[in-house]
């Protein structure tokens, strides 16, 4: 039931953003459509349900978005510097990164965040190992890799998904 309500809320939010009006006719149509679609799809849409709306998790979601946005801006200045520099200062390689996260959704978010953060790109995810293309390999020691690439995201994602 809580999973169904969560799905329904997300759908009606998307519908309102699409029509961008608070006209009652639009809202009723959206509610009916969201109800029908949510009935069919709530099982595959989410596995946690309303627990994402717990204040503590909401706090961590906001914190995650802020950390993520700062990393994205930093990544862009990093790329801009490398592209403009006439010497092209790169030292690429593919390294293995071991994650402690269990849930698949958390791993997906971790992989996508790593792709958008400075100098790293996820190539493949196999069980708990992420293969990461690193544009400037600083070391091949697992501890250093963990700290340099994803420790900040992983701590927050652990709070959200577990």
């Amino acid at each position: 039931m809580s999973r169904f309500t969560f799905t329904f809320l997300i759908y009606i939010l998307i519908w309102t953003a699409f029509t961008s009006s608070f006209d009652p006719q639009e809202l009723v149509t959206g509610a009916v459509l969201s109800f029908i679609v949510a009935t069919f799809s709530y099982k595959s849409f989410t596995s946690e349900g309303l627990s994402y709306l717990h204040p503590r998790k909401l706090f961590y979601i906001v914190k995650y978005l802020i950390v993520f946005f700062i990393a994205l801006v930093k990544a862009n200045f990093d790329v801009a510097w490398r592209v403009i520099n006439p010497k092209l200062p790169i030292n690429p390689g593919i390294v293995t990164y071991k994650t402690n996260l269990k849930s698949d959704t958390a791993k997906m978010f971790l992989a996508n965040s790593i792709t958008l953060t400075p100098g790293t790109l996820t190539v493949d995810v196999i069980d708990d190992k992420l293969y990461i293309h690193w544009i400037d390999v600083k070391s091949t020691d697992p501890e250093t890799i963990y700290k340099e690439i994803g420790a900040a995201f992983e701590e927050i994602l652990k709070e959200i998904f577990q």
């Binding site: 994205l72 801006v73 990544a75 862009n76 790329v79 801009a80 490398r82 592209v83 092209l88 790169i90 690429p92 792709t115 958008l116 100098g119 790293t120 790109l121 190539v123 293309h133 544009i135």
Partner: peptide, 16 residues
Amino acid sequence: PDVFTRMQAGTKATTL
């Protein structure tokens, strides 16, 4: 110089 580094530059900069 190669596909992976191109992807690095492309994905991040065009996303932002």
